[in-house]
């Protein structure tokens, strides 16, 4: 395409937007509503996943050693475990550290009754943190096969609940995103179809003069892309303000939640939400206009 033709096409695309103001507003509103719903949903899901992930990161499998094990063997076991894909972090807790923690967290004023003895003398252990709680069973099976391990503590119920929640969030997200996409493509296709009926004659004249499909389609596609961009931009700005205010309100109003739940910053959410929404808006605008014009090209 010549530069002059591109310039003309761009100008026509822009003119079309202003020429059919009602149609343009309807398209922007439709794309905007879809991107807005998607953005809200995405922000909630991202935070929910983050909360689940935070909870998961606190779950550890604890491994206790045989009583007569050597320090060398403990180091070997540590090296073997840290090589596993399921493991995100491994910490060695000596018998003394285990006893100190127990005294501090559980015994309180009764600590004096134990004198200088360490009842947890045989409780040196590895605390193994997982990349994903659903991998716990595979890791435990592996640990059971290692010589020198006496006992393994795992959190089956919590791990299963978190793992199931994670899967549920993923499935629900995929389902809702598909529904939103289908609804928006249907709405855009209808809106574009109404707008294009007005210009059916222009398309047929272009075709009879000898314009290629590309030349005929370009102004409409550019119009669709521009409407998609605006349609995505407006809800993004709205969501940005809503998100910041809601987080500020929740954290300020329910201070107890602050220690339990960690919300993602707007910057973190928007670093992925902005490109996804723009691709979505532009994509819907492009596809809607591309497909609808195609119906009228068979002249």
């Amino acid at each position: 395409m010549r530069i002059s033709t591109f310039g003309y096409t761009l100008k026509q695309g822009l003119k079309n937007i202003f020429r059919n103001k009602i149609f343009s507003l309807a398209t922007i509103a439709t794309i905007g509503a879809c991107v807005f719903l998607f953005g809200l949903f995405y922000s909630v899901v991202m935070n929910f996943q983050n909360i689940v992930k935070e909870a998961q990161s606190g779950i550890a499998v604890t491994v206790f050693f045989d009583e007569d094990i050597s320090d060398e063997r403990i180091r070997e076991i540590g090296d073997l475990i840290s090589l596993r894909a399921e493991v995100s972090n491994i910490e060695f807790v000596s018998a003394d550290e285990a006893w100190e923690t127990f005294k501090r967290e559980e015994l309180g004023e009764y600590v004096e009754t134990f004198g200088d003895d360490n009842p947890l003398d045989t409780c040196a252990n590895f605390e193994i943190y997982l990349n994903d709680v659903s991998m716990q069973d595979a890791l435990v099976t592996y640990l059971e096969s290692i010589d020198g391990i006496r006992d393994i503590n795992k959190s089956v119920i919590v791990a299963n609940i978190l793992s199931s929640m994670n899967s549920l969030i993923s499935y629900v997200s995929i389902g809702i995103i598909f529904i939103l996409l289908a609804v928006s493509i249907f709405l855009i296709s209808n809106t574009v179809a109404i707008g294009i009926t007005v210009r059916k004659e222009e398309i047929s004249i272009m075709k009879l003069i000898g314009a290629t499909d590309f030349v005929v389609r370009s102004p409409f596609v550019i119009e669709g892309i521009l409407l998609g961009l605006v349609g995505a931009g407006i809800p993004l700005v709205a969501i940005y303000f809503i998100y910041n205010n809601v987080i500020e309100y929740v954290v300020g109003r329910f201070t107890i939640l602050d220690s339990l739940l960690t919300f993602l910053s707007a910057k973190t959410v928007f670093s992925t939400l902005v490109p996804i929404s723009i691709i979505m808006g532009v994509g819907i605008g492009f596809l809607g206009s591309f497909v609808t014009v195609r119906k009228h090209l068979k002249v």
């Binding site: 003309y8 003069i209 314009a211």
Partner: peptide, 24 residues
């Protein structure tokens, strides 16, 4: 006639040249 009602006489005629990408 099938003229483009939103464009003037010059643009209607130029339209035929634009769609086949005649240099300006």
């Amino acid at each position: 006639f099938r003229l483009l009602k939103d464009r003037n006489v010059y643009e209607n005629v130029a339209f035929a040249q634009r769609v086949i990408e005649v240099p300006p």
